[in-house]
Design a binder for these strands. Structure first.
Lengths: 121, 121, 121, 121
DNA sequence: GTGGTCTAGACCACC
DNA sequence: GTGGTCTAGACCACG
């Protein structure tokens, strides 16, 4: 469980943690049922506040990506496949528009999307 | 020039304005050379402060989406097609992963992307 | 007398006019005693307001670069060689510092300055 | 961290702050990694508004001179040495021309530039 | 008329 | 504690 945090980024740290765990689940490096590090361990390893890690875990739990068990900590939840969130769709619309305005053609954009979708660790 | 602002969103208002103008340029509802509303007009219409609109315009100018002419205000700039920003790529990677975890299959995801890319007003 | 004005620049137009005339005098394309176009002519040619040209001429006169004669308009003044203005020195200090921070070495910077100093039309 | 602000200057205050910090980095009085005063502290010390300081910091960040760390404020960034900006070159051309018209000879001008380039606190 | 700058305050997100 | 955002007003430079 190696996190790459950028303390100079404009993305909040708790969000960076959340994003990297989501990416880890998607690319297979975090399997269903696998236990995540404890809040304390992750905070110490990354040199950040426990509250920050806690916030990330709460967010992931609320979004259904992980489950918490009082005895054994947090683990990757079976992914329900509930269909995309509205926010995800809106973000995709925006970023695909930016892609087009940046001069990326239709074919190139779709190839890029396919590559990013397929990505596995 | 109708903006839909969500004052309760966690996305800053100036960013929402920026996003909607980018989408407007991409879907063709804002053509190259077309004049944007003045800062004052947009602020009044949306019921927000001039400085908030000003911040959005400065961001758009800095990103190259619009130009300001000392004589006549802001207009849509010719899009330079400078290639995608690293941030756009990262965001796409994340959102496509979310799509997959939400149970959207490869074909469905690419169809969705194609549809979003093609979108024109 | 060809002016290249950038209406999208953050430098005011009257200042752009002033700068280009100073550069013209320095590189020899405008000789001492040579008559400048009338305010009206220059404004029409450049498609700008007469007030803007007037402001540039006033500035140039105040700085001693040109003289105005009620009968014959404006002409390039004999350059008094009064030593550099404090503002010029301050600007040079700032821009040379920027050069150094941008990684331009001492020799390269001085060669650049020599080249810019020598420039003649 | 002493700033000398001229409230009557035509140069905006936020730009004056930006310039003096750049000069401070260049002359060594602000070393890489050194923490800048907080926005609040600098604003109070200089008797100006927080937003004015904030604007200066945002400009410096955008230009790569400083970085902000969510945890501890702003610090001087490692200077990337990305080569001079076109604006810097244009400004140098103009000011060297002014120098020549002010009667400063080639040798004297280059000595002056060398002295300004070398300046260290 | 336009955009740019600045103020004096406030609230919020993040850590 | 920090920086980020926003407001409601004001003044100014520019054209």
């Amino acid at each position: 469980m190696l996190l790459h945090l950028d303390f100079h980024s404009e993305i909040p740290i708790y969000q960076q943690i959340r994003n990297q765990i989501v990416l880890g689940i998607a690319d297979g490096s975090l399997g269903v049922g696998q236990r995540l590090p404890t809040i304390r361990a992750l905070a110490q390893e990354a040199g950040i506040n426990m509250m920050t890690v806690s916030k990330a875990y709460q967010l992931l739990k609320q979004e259904g990506y992980i489950q918490t068990d009082r005895r054994s900590g947090a683990m990757v939840a079976p992914q329900p496949g509930a269909g995309p969130r509205a926010e995800t769709m809106e973000a995709l619309r925006l970023h695909l528009s930016e892609l087009r305005l940046a001069g990326v053609g239709r074919e190139a954009a779709l190839e890029l999307c396919a590559r990013l979708y397929d990505e596995e660790g």
